[in-house]
Structure formats: structure tokens, C-alpha cells
Write a protein that binds this DNA or RNA. Structure first.
Lengths: 238, 238, 238, 238
DNA sequence: TATGAATGAGTTTTCATTCAT
DNA sequence: CATGAATGAAAACTCATTCAT
């Protein structure tokens, strides 16, 4: 269980975020030659940072440009409008979230309850990793709940994350009962967001241990039976 | 236990919003005669609605005025700046939240665990009531986490809500262990917010039963011991 | 030679300025009963004060109303528009200036040069009296040199002041030569204005003596011959 | 002695206004190549024109922009606020006035009275030149006597003009007596302003000769003794 | 008659977007 | 390509004027 490092309330320089982007597969290794999408990347990262800080409407395009250390006009060479920009930022971040959460995540085996718990633990750690590694992305995604300017494509991406989780949750739920899957996901995601927010606002100070405890608590939330129960036998129906 | 009605994604006329407003011009109070047409009230309500919908920066003052069915200039007769307006809206909403949550809430008696659970249940219902009765207020408060434009006074109000909860949580925690209080509150509040959001976004459909189930789940989150623990006696299933 | 008192840089409470107004001849002495035109008077005085201070465009009607200690609406009961108000203020002030300058001023007798000088001295004192007694009126008139919002009537009043002076000046000039009358008046009025302004701005401190000296200087300006010369013989041309 | 031409009531294209402007963006200076089209310059000139015409509060920023033949937004690229603009216009004009008056003006030699008179004559001509070449600047400066919106810097510039004149005046006064220096300057400046105003308002028609006559008259105002004194040696009486 | 709350046209200022360099 | 100066549409805010009380 490794959350990289303690999650910090303050953002960290968005360095080296060049790799995990979907739209930049072109692996250039030309010497010094700037890879084609370098600028777009810079803009996306900068925009994420400032949008996360001040919100979409609270941020001007010049501010984005400045954060990206490029000219204003350049922004418009890569993104038609501010609107398109925010949508790309959204999808970009969402896809990274997806990768953090789902890439290589083993399927749930609902028949082994302790495995299910372990599976959940893994999910939790991945979530924490994401929030720790990309605080701005997390914060940004958190605020953009289907706001008016998100287009169809962006909303669709949402499902690409939710879908697999929902499916896994479904299997678990069939096995251990509890809340409807959607509600569970809502509670879970909400709880995690609450944790991160509280950390950001200084209400709490997240360390490794607290994160684990919180994960355990959330597991209890999901499973109607005591998670630490001697075995998974005595559960009635749920 | 009454959640008024199923929580709807859409707003409903804000009921019983009689709270006195700081800058309300005249407030001559004929006995029993409800204040004829408090403009400041109208503006606060309208502003809450549109701010909740589109956010502070995403809303123009004319939009607020239109929502309140008054002229733009009138807004400025009651609130010096847009900034002051949003702060008053915030405080106004926060105070109403406080009323919903805390007014008449009995103190926790941590020595009777089942009472503690009942106490928590009550809190949960109150929260649900608020979210149901004032969806806009809930949504608005949710988005304003210490954003730049909240002034000192507004932030201070925040504590007036958190304080008592924190205190009660502290007692509980001393009794039943579990997470640090702040983390618990964060998880809890987050979970609830997640639920409401999911409902608003159409991911789930909140009914009375789901709300109760979710409350039970959250209680499990708080209590490290099996909620159905041998001792707390009479608890059946929850 | 009495200039009432040393001219002060700061305005003085516009008290008791009820008497010398053309349009308020109705001598009421009803006990306590407010005289009919009281309000209009109050407004004119207040408007003069604030206009003199901040200029026409720099002053709002509410500010005028507040200065007059009446409601905004009331202003409009007495003056159709802000524009009309400023014109009435102008005429009112100009008429008072005229009274100060011309009422009872003896005709010039150009054949006695020392009398002419005395005549001029009197004019100078009257001017100083006006500036001392009504600093706001003086300042206000000074700034309104045929600005766009002055209507025909107001400009016409101007001539009612200038005319007689011009006529007297003409006689003088015919006798003692010197500059064209218009230019003389321009220089003279300008010099006096400069004096008062410098006093208001704190560049100089006007006392009785300085005023007199300045008057003497101005007389020298008008008369090509040494003013104190034994007689008016030796002057060649100038 | 050249006053360029008869002073006209209407403005004329501001010539030789090359003064560098503080906030001018780029000022790349090709040798000899006159700066192509300094926007800040254009704005300052246009603003001077309209401010001189209608005053600061009577002029809207769009009017300035239109006079400068540029977009409104552009004004704000060069001047943070309307307030800053008017201050820069003021300083700019004042500095030009200073140049006209003082650049290359020989020091007074108070021991040769006729030279002093010649010195004064030169000053007078320079003043007239300025008023003729830059009627708007003259008019504008005339109206801005320490109005509220002038900042510290602007007021300080004022002294840069007054100082040298005061000093020269002091020397003269020590020699030939007369009014206190400040009062003399006030009268003199006022007289000149009066002349120009009268011309602008059409009361008089300024030609070369009248200007000279007026200058002579003003010299008489300064010098208590007859200006045509037999020579500058024997002047006693003073 | 006196008032001041209400208002929308108009003012100052910002900002997404374009385009000449 | 990259840039940032230029711009006008739109936002925040003001104020002359009206009108119900």
C-alpha cells in the first residue's frame, strides 16, 4: 500500500506529466526537436492548474497563457475556444483518472469476500495515489459535475470511468448485499472527495494511516456485515 | 422521520426563508403581517438560485436581477457589490443549514450506544431534510469551499456549523473509537454530498428508503465495531 | 474699504443667504410658517456648494439633495432636470455677483482721473467682497465659462454683468487710452480670479493689504500712465 | 517675437508632441525613423482634446477612444483606469508647458531693469506661443487646479513649473519691489488666462499687437514704477 | 407636497477572440 | 508557427429620473 507520499494540500508543479496523456502517443526521441504536441500539453497542464484554482469562469484565457508561458494567441492555435479548451482539459484529466483507477485492476472475485475487500483496498489506494499525484486534476474533476459547458463527448468519458466500477460493484453487491450499486458509488466517491477537500482546506491533515483507516471505514460502509467479522459466514442476506 | 418528499433534482420554492437580512432597508413589522415584499429577501433567493446553477463567476448581476424580477439597479441598492451579495447569500444559506441541522438537536449521550446511533440517525434525517427543502442552498454551499471571494465573516459562520458537530463527534469518538473526528466529519459530509449530487445528476433516484439505507451505511462507517454488535442490545437490522 | 474679512480658502456655511436672491422677494414673516420658496432656495444653495466643489458632472443629484437635507424626489419638484438646476444656480449666482458689483456703483467720471482710479478701487473692493462672502458662487461662476450645458438665458445673464462694466470701461479707455476695453476686462477679471484661486489652493494667503496692493497693480495695468503720476500729462502713448 | 499665428479659439493639430510616455508599450527606436504610430501618444492627444472640451467627468472613455480612432479596449491597454489616463494627460501637458516656458529661458539679471523687462517680455511671448500652439493643453491645464483626481505625482509636476518662475520672480521683486512674488504670479497667470479665455469665448480677438499690449500692461502690473522710466539706472521711487 | 425605492440607460472596465507581424 | 496588440461585446456598477405612497 503506497500512496506515493502524503497528500499535500498545496498543488505541486505539474512536472513530467507528459507521459500519461492519451493524445500524445507519438514517441519522439529526436534530439532536442520539440515533440509535436508539446505546446498543447503545456496548455492543458497550465489550464488544469488555473481552472482548478479559480474555476472556469473565474479564469481568463490570458491567465491560462501566462501559466503556460506562451502567448495568448498560441492558445487559440491549439484550441478553438476557451470552451473547447476546458472540455479537453476535462477529458484529459478524466482519462488520467481512469488510468490510475482501472489500468491493471484485477477483476473482482465476489466469491472470496476477503479478496473483495482486498480488491476494494486496492481501488482506494489507487484513488489516493491519483489525488496525491494530481491534486489539481482531482480538484478540477471534482468541481466539474456536469456543468453547462461540458459537451456530450466529455460527459460520455465520464461513463468510461464509471462503467467498469459499476460493473464490479454490481458483482460485489450481488454477493454481499447492501445498498444499490449507484448509491454505493455515490457515497464512496463522495466520502473520498470529502476527505481530500478537508485536507486541502486544512481541516484535516492526511497521512498514510488516516487514508488507510478511511478506506477501512468506507469498506464498512459498503459491506453490511462487519468487515472484520471472523468470517463471511454469518451474514444473513443483506 | 420525515424527509418532506423525495429529493428532486430541481429546485423548489424556498419555504420559510424568513431570516432577517443585514442590509434590508426598512423592516417595519406589522404584527402578524408577514413582511410585504422584502426585496433583499427576493434578491438573496434569486441569487442563490442562479449561483447554485451557474456558479458565482458564471452568473451576471443582470441574471440575478432578472431571476428576482427586479431592475439591475435595485440589486445594488441592497448589496454594495456582487461580492458582498454572494457573501450574504452564503451566510444566509449557511445559517439556514445550521438551523436545520442543529436547532433542537439533543446532545449526544455517548454512553448509550444505541442512542448515539439514533442521534446520528436524526442528524442524517435533518441533513436530508435540508437538502430536500433547499436544494439550491445545499448545492451552493457545496460549491463554495473557501473560495477566494468569501470574506472573513463568511468563513467564521462556517465554524458555527462545524463546531457543534465536531464537539458531538468528539464525544462519540471517545466512546466508540474509530477515525479522528475531523476525518469522520469529512467522510460523512462528503458521502452525503455525493449522494445528493448523484441524485441531482440523475445517477440515482433518492427515495426515503435509500436515504435511510445510506444513513445506516454511514453509521457503519463511523463505528468501527459491527453495528449489530452483541452489546448495543436491541438493534435488529437497521 | 472693507472686504468683510480676510478671504478664506475654505467655504463657509452658506448661512443666511436667503436675503439677496432675486426670485425670493416674498417677505414672509408668518410665525414659523415656512416661506414658500424656502425649499428652492435650499436646493440652489446646496447645489452651488457641491457644484463648486466637484463640478457639475462630478456631482450627482442625490448628493445635491443630501447637501440640501431633503429627499431626491423633492429636487425634481423644483427643477425639471439636473440641467435646469445648474442653469438656475448659475443665473442665481451671476445675479448676486451683479448686485455686488454694480448695485449703487456710481458712474465713472472720466474727466477726473483720480476719481476714475477711485472708482476702480471701489469696483475692486466689491469684487473682493463678493469673493469673500460667497466663495462658492465665485468659484462656481469661474468654472462655468460657457460650458455646453448653459442655456441661452444663462448666457444672456452674463451680458447683464458685463455690459455696464464694458460701458464704464469704454469711457475710461477713451480718456486714458490703453488696451481695448474687452482685453482690459479680460485681463482684469482674469487677474482677480488668479488671485482668488491662488488663495484657495494655498499658494498665497490673501489679507486686506495684499488685496489692496493687487488692486493698485491692476490699476497700473489698465492705465498706461503711472497711476500715481502727479497728473496725467506726461503719458505719451503706452 | 513670434506668436506663430493669431491664437484661434479652435484647436490645431498638436505639433511636436514627441514626449515619451511612461506606459508606452514598445518604443523601438529606428534611427531617425519617427515612431510609427505611438498609440499611447494618440490616446493622450485625443484625451487632451476631449477633456479640454468637456472636462474629465463630462467625457466618457468611449468618447476618448473615438477621438483617438481606436477601440475602447485599447485605451485600457495603455492606461489602467480613466483616472490614470487623466493624470498622465495632465503631466504630459504640464511638461510641455514647462518646456515652452522655461527651456532655454535666460536667467533674469535683476540689475539691468530694461533687461528684466525684456526677460518678462520673452516669458510672455512663450506663454502666448504655448497657448497658440496648444490651445487644448492650455485650456485643460487651466481647468485642472488641484482637482480631486490629480495624484501626488501630478501635483508635484506642478511645482517643477512654478519653482523656476518663482525663483526668477523673487529676484525681480527684490530689485524693483512691488507685490509679493506669489501674488504677482497669481495675478499674472490669471490675467493671461483671462485673455486666452476671452479669446476662446469670442469676447475678444487676439492678435499679435493685442498680445504685446497685454504683455506691456502686465509688466506695469509687476513694476510699481513706470515701465518707460528714463533708464534703468535711476529708478528710485519704485 | 415630500419622499426615497425602483429602474434602465449609460459609464467604467474586462476578456474572449482575431489578425497583422 | 508564435505572438501580443487591438477590439467590441458583455460585465460590473452608477445615476438621472420617475412614481407610488
Amino acid at each position: 500500500m503506497n500512496v506515493h507520499s502524503v497528500i499535500r494540500g498545496r498543488r505541486k508543479a505539474a512536472t513530467e506529466r507528459t507521459a500519461p496523456v492519451a493524445s500524445a502517443p507519438k514517441s519522439r526521441r529526436g534530439r532536442g526537436r520539440p515533440r509535436v504536441d508539446d505546446k498543447a500539453r503545456r496548455i492543458l497542464d497550465a489550464a488544469l492548474r488555473v481552472f482548478a484554482e479559480r474555476g472556469y469562469h473565474g479564469t481568463s484565457v490570458p491567465e491560462v497563457a501566462e501559466a503556460a508561458r506562451i502567448g495568448v494567441g498560441t492558445v487559440y492555435r491549439y484550441f478553438e475556444t476557451k470552451d473547447e479548451l476546458v472540455n479537453e482539459v476535462f477529458r484529459d484529466a478524466k482519462i488520467r483518472l481512469r488510468r490510475y483507477l482501472l489500468d491493471g485492476l484485477p477483476p473482482v472475485d465476489p466469491y472470496k469476500l476477503d479478496m473483495a475487500q482486498r480488491w476494494f483496498g486496492q481501488l482506494w489506494v489507487r484513488l489516493a495515489s491519483f489525488a496525491a499525484a494530481e491534486p489539481d486534476a482531482f480538484r478540477f474533476l471534482e468541481m466539474q459535475d456536469h456543468v453547462a459547458y461540458l459537451d456530450a463527448h466529455s460527459r460520455q468519458i465520464e461513463l468510461a470511468v464509471l462503467g467498469p466500477l459499476w460493473h464490479a460493484g454490481k458483482q460485489l453487491r450481488d454477493r454481499i448485499g447492501g445498498l444499490p450499486v449507484d448509491a454505493s458509488i455515490a457515497l464512496l466517491w463522495g466520502a473520498f472527495v470529502g476527505l481530500i477537500k478537508a485536507n486541502r482546506l486544512g481541516y484535516i491533515r492526511l497521512d498514510q494511516r488516516t487514508i488507510e483507516q478511511a478506506g477501512a471505514a468506507c469498506w464498512r460502509m459498503l459491506a453490511p456485515a462487519p468487515s472484520r467479522a471472523s468470517d463471511s459466514k454469518t451474514r444473513t442476506k443483506g
